[in-house]
Simulated assay, not measured.
Amino acid sequence: MKRMAFACLGFNACAVGAFLIALPLSMSGANAQGNIDPAISADIEAYCTNIADAARDRRYLLQKQELDTLQAGIDERIGVLEERRAEYEDWLKRRNDFLQQAEQGLIDIYKGMRPDAAAERLENVNAEIAAAIIMKLSPRIASQILNEMDSQVAAALTSVIASAADETTSRNPS
């Protein structure tokens, strides 16, 4: 039991065994300087030699059990992550479907508006959104709307549209 307690604390099993053998023997077999009798030393060495393989096997077994426990935890976490990834992909698909429907509905709204009214509304929208809407419209309707806009706003939207079509424009400006 004492050996197991020392081994659990991380002590070398041979050193613990030698200590346990030497303790009672050293009380009777040690000289005044604390040197252990050669016979006792031989017993200690024989003990260490005899238990070395068993101690190593036990240490390997404990390490394997710990690795198995860690692997089970990792497998569990991977399972949770896979579930979350599947949920995220489902949510993303539903979101993209909704956005596509909303985008088409928005395009249809601007397609049905008078050009002067559509121009007035698009002047008040974010330039990138307005440019995206204009790009989705037919060229005839888009040109009518741009014709009705303030020239500076129309130029800014044209610049955004042109830069979106430019293949040399980097997606990551950093």
Rank of each mutant, 00 (worst) to 15 (best):
N126G: 03
L122T: 02
M4F: 11
P38I: 08
R58S: 03
K64G: 03
D75K: 13
S26R: 13
D37F: 09
A130M: 03
P115S: 08
Q101L: 13
W91N: 06
S174A: 12
A165G: 04
A132C: 04
Q63F: 07
Q101M: 11
R121K: 08
V80S: 05
S174W: 14
P115N: 04
R77F: 02
I36D: 02
A18E: 07
S26P: 00
A7P: 00
L67E: 15
G112W: 04
W91Q: 11
N31R: 07
A164T: 05
D90H: 08
F11R: 03
C14M: 09
R140Y: 10
C48L: 01
G73V: 03
M113T: 01
I78Y: 01
D53E: 09
R85V: 06
I74E: 11
G10R: 09
M27H: 08
I134K: 07
A15C: 00
I161V: 07
R3T: 11
G112F: 10
M135Y: 04
D75P: 06
R85S: 10
V125H: 02
D53W: 01
N124D: 08
Y110R: 05
R85Q: 10
I129V: 14
N96S: 12
P173M: 13
I107C: 04
T69C: 09
N172I: 15
D116H: 04
G17K: 00
S174L: 15
M27N: 09
L9G: 14
S41L: 15
A13G: 01
D150C: 06
A86R: 07
L23I: 04
E167H: 08
L92D: 05
G29M: 13
A119L: 06
E45F: 03
E87W: 07
I44K: 05
I40V: 15
R94W: 07
C8M: 12
A72G: 04
I36S: 04
A72K: 14
K136T: 03
D97H: 03
L122W: 04
P115C: 02
I109F: 09
A165F: 12
Q144M: 14
T69H: 10
Q33I: 09
A118S: 02
E89Q: 05
N31C: 02
A117Y: 06
R56V: 01
K2H: 03
R94T: 10
V160Q: 06
R140H: 12
I129L: 13
L67S: 10
G79D: 00
N147R: 14
M113F: 13
A18H: 03
Q63Y: 05
A86G: 00
